[in-house]
Amino acid sequence: MKKILERMPDALARLLVVFIGLAVAGAFVVIVLIPKPLKDVKIQWADAVKREQAKPVKYAGFHACAECHDKIYDKKKTGYHRDLSCETCHGPAKAHTEDPDKVKPVIPQERAFCPQCHAYNPSRPRGFPQINPVAHNPLKPCASCHNPHDPKPPTTPKECSACHGEIARTKAVSHHVQLECTVCHQAPQQHKISPRSVKPTKPQTREFCGKCHAKDAKDKLARNAPRIDLANHGEKYVCWQCHYPHSPEVE
């Protein structure tokens, strides 16, 4: 035992002193010297949540505008833009609600503004109103014809393409380019005024397409149309389940 004690200390004891010294110093620094918020992640998280919540708001939200601008708000409520927040077009308005006279939100007037949503883009969902800003009344500000708070066509549109731009453009490069919309759809006048309440007709049967594409079709439009035998050509399906009529795939 004595022998162990004699030879252990010199190497091991010296090391132990150093290591224990380091450990004690480290523990002292960590436990005593360093304040709790630096060590406790829960405290840091609570602080961070508070800091995050205290960040300034810049968009006031749709309720805030209605308090003063009730007339516009009521008008907008019934139109196509009813789901839009005021700040979608007018930009962040929290500062305006706090000091209405000094800070004014923007009123977008340049012609480039509305096309951000309404320019034709083939990736946009079908049925979303889109125009070609180059061809659509060039240089005229949008607001001169459309009230942005209750946007509708200024006059009853004559062309179907005024609203159904995507279809018109698709059809324009398809084999059906020569066909008027009215060849296949009857659109009542009321549809042009109130598009959602009265809908145009759509063909219902294979025989309708057959007027041009059946092998014995006699319609004068059908002179160069590809012919099929209605009896055995894709019999289970109606035509438009395979061919998109506005751009029929024939290749």
Binding site: D10, A11, L12, R14
Partner: peptide, 17 residues
């Protein structure tokens, strides 16, 4: 670490360590 021990035992311990 100011150690001075160079006895045979110490060397053996070094070796084992």
């Amino acid at each position: 670490l100011f150690s001075k021990d160079r006895s045979e035992g110490a060397l053996a311990f070094d070796h084992k360590a």
